[in-house]
Design a protein around this nucleic acid. Structure first.
Lengths: 154, 154
DNA sequence: CTGAAACAGGACCTAACTGGTCTCCAATCA
DNA sequence: TGATTGGAGACCAGTTAGGTCCTGTTTCAG
């Protein structure tokens, strides 16, 4: 199904949310905002921090803030940070295939991978935020709703 | 990592291999050619058959052959046949999100999904075959090699 | 007419991977 | 000095994809 990892999806939501606030924000606060479970938010933020997409401030009164504006963060960079290199198959560009079987087409996928990467590079989080069908309010509402549901369900 | 399912990868290899032969080919034969385990090849061919990408002939002396030329089969159609609709996230175009959390960006991903789909539509298996860095011989060699390794490993 | 060969369509099991949680450590500020 | 917050990694569990097998149906050969 060619699916994206859920973490990457969360990361986008979290970053957009972070971009709509000013000052440093703690991970619990972001978790409350987005409805994503706190430990997961923390984990994602750590990764984003090590990839320089967000800046962290440790200690009391610490938290996170965007390293650049939403317009300067591409979807590709978020996915790359969370999921690693963007590639459609096990044969990463020029890399060796352990399996061998799927390797018959080694070079061929490179074209596809590059095309997809270019596509994702061209879309910024700012665009994502604006194109959102539901809007920020809806996002928050949905998030809280799901958080409640999850808690009740468990 | 935005990865493609291995089945889809196999499917491409199998189809290209099928396209290089004439007459009907049995699934055991294709398995031997590609190095993909026979039951898996059979499974994939069944799916491809039901999606009209290959034509099947039952009974003794039966087998499979391409429904159209490699040039007329897009990578997108193969992936769609094997993995279902091509979409980057759980939110399929216009569909409803069960989770809610990842749904904040519902509409935004559509643009991305469409772009990726277009990219994959534009690449035919014939192109894949020609661009193959290793070439058909290498493919076969690798396949057999891995088949041997697998057998010994198990 | 009978048996073998090959596809059709499932059910089912296993294993890998992802997602999610928890714990301990380091840093910062009141 | 202690409370707060991020940093790093181990670890557990649920899901899902990959792979195998079984049974039936069709067709050809002898």
């Amino acid at each position: 199904m060619l699916k994206l990892s859920r973490l990457a999806d969360y990361a986008v939501v979290i970053l957009v949310n972070l971009g709509e606030q000013d000052g440093v924000v703690t991970s619990p606060a972001l978790a409350a905002e987005t409805g994503v479970p706190e430990p997961t938010v923390a984990k994602i933020l750590k990764v984003l921090s090590s990839n320089k997409l967000v800046l962290s401030q440790r200690g009391a009164k610490g938290g996170y803030r965007l390293a650049r504006s939403l317009a300067d963060i591409s979807v590709a960079s978020v996915i790359t940070a969370v999921d690693g290199k963007i590639a459609l198959t096990a044969c990463v560009d020029g890399g060796e295939c352990d399996a061998g079987v799927s390797c018959g087409m080694c070079g061929s996928w490179d074209t596809i991978n590059k095309a997809i990467r270019d596509t994702l590079e061209g879309i910024s989080l700012e665009v994502m935020r604006q194109n959102s069908a539901c809007g920020a309010g809806m996002m928050k509402k949905n998030a809280l709703m799901s958080a409640t549901t999850r808690r009740e369900g468990a």
